[in-house]
Computed example of a mutant assay.
Amino acid sequence: MSYLPCIEIEPEQPATSAVIWLHGLGASGHDFEPIVPELGLPESMAVRFVFPHAPQIPVTINGGMVMPAWYDILSMDIDRKIDQSQIMQSANAITALIEREIERGIDSQRILLAGFSQGGAVAYQTALSYDKPLAGLMALSTYLATHETLERSEANRQLPMIVDHGMYDPVVPEALGKHAVAVLQSWGYAPEYRTYPMEHQVCPQQIGDISRWLQKVLG
Rank of each mutant, 00 (worst) to 15 (best):
I82W: 02
S17D: 02
M161I: 15
T149F: 11
F32K: 04
A15I: 09
A27Y: 06
E8N: 07
H23P: 05
V181F: 09
A139N: 10
M138V: 10
P34R: 09
H200V: 03
S129C: 06
Y168W: 03
F32L: 09
L74M: 11
I111Q: 10
W21Q: 07
D209Y: 01
I57H: 09
S17E: 08
G40T: 03
S17T: 05
Y168D: 07
I35N: 00
W187F: 15
I57W: 12
Q215T: 09
D31F: 04
A182I: 14
K132C: 02
E199I: 00
I35R: 00
I57C: 13
M161Y: 10
G166N: 03
D72Q: 13
A114W: 10
M88G: 09
L144K: 00
S2A: 14
T146S: 13
I82M: 05
P11A: 10
I106L: 05
R110P: 05
H23K: 03
H165A: 01
Y196D: 00
G136A: 03
H179F: 10
E192Y: 04
V171M: 07
N92Y: 09
L150S: 05
A180T: 07
E199G: 06
R104L: 13
E33Q: 15
P197A: 06
T142S: 15
P170S: 08
K178C: 11
L25W: 08
I207T: 08
A93W: 01
V183Y: 10
G26D: 08
P52E: 06
I162G: 01
D79M: 12
A145I: 11
D107P: 03
E148H: 13
A18E: 14
S2Q: 14
P58A: 08
M138L: 14
E103H: 12
Q86M: 14
D209L: 01
K132R: 15
D209V: 00
T60P: 04
W187H: 13
Q185T: 13
W21S: 04
S108H: 06
Y196L: 02
V47W: 02
Q86S: 09
W187S: 07
C6R: 10
I210H: 04
N92K: 12
G64E: 11
T126W: 11
I78M: 14
I73Y: 01
A93I: 04
Q89I: 10
K178L: 15
M161V: 07
M138Q: 04
M138F: 11
